[in-house]
């Protein structure tokens, strides 16, 4: 018996047989879990928080944002279907600045109310480490304090070597989740 409901796949259909649902579908579940359990697990993707958080190997446990402090890693909703897991560098009123530990620019003037959650535990290859641990606090403090000079030095070096580089080779590292 032939199936009458023929679906044209790639050849004529607009949508392919395999679809990746919008990121929001996934993060809607994360928000739900956060509201329900007060905690949610998010797997790390991208390299922006290396070496602490490794792409697909590590994860984080986030909790609803209470008081956010510089040094905290937050899950931020960019409201364009993209999310970022980056470190808070400074807070000014209801706005803040964040940067990935492995990124070379600051993300400034972001609204605090778009923070979905704050990382309280890091799952490093299966080992659960609390962000309240002495080492983690020191690490956060050092990385946060160094982020601005680190980025400025990089920018200065980039500016200095620019005349010696061929035109068009000025690449900025792309934004990664």
């Amino acid at each position: 018996m032939k199936n009458e409901k023929v679906e044209k796949l790639s050849s004529s259909g607009r949508k392919g047989p395999l679809q990746v649902l919008p990121t929001e579908t996934y993060f809607a579940l994360v928000r739900e879990k956060l509201a329900e359990n007060g905690q949610a697990y998010v797997r790390v993707t991208g390299t922006s928080m290396q070496p602490l958080l490794r792409h697909l190997r590590d994860g984080v446990i986030i909790e609803p944002p209470g008081r956010i402090r510089p040094g905290d890693i937050v899950l931020f909703d960019r409201r364009n279907g993209r999310y970022a897991l980056h470190r808070v560098i400074r807070i000014q009123g209801d706005r803040f600045t964040m940067a990935g530990d492995n990124q070379w620019y600051l993300d400034r003037d972001l609204p605090l109310n778009q923070v979905v959650g704050v990382v309280r535990w890091v799952d490093r290859g299966g080992r659960k480490i609390s962000c309240e641990k002495f080492f983690m606090k020191m690490y956060a403090r050092v990385v946060t304090a160094l982020s601005v000079p680190r980025i400025n030095i990089r920018r200065a070096v980039g500016w200095l070597v620019k005349p010696f580089r061929r035109a068009g080779s000025d690449h900025r590292k792309g934004e990664r989740g």
Binding site: Q19, V20, L21, Y26, F27, L56
Partner: peptide
Amino acid sequence: VIIGIGDENYAPNQIMSLNETG
């Protein structure tokens, strides 16, 4: 819906779906 459990290379912050034929 495709659910990935146990494959460490699976990009887990994604949900994938298939149509009827898929």
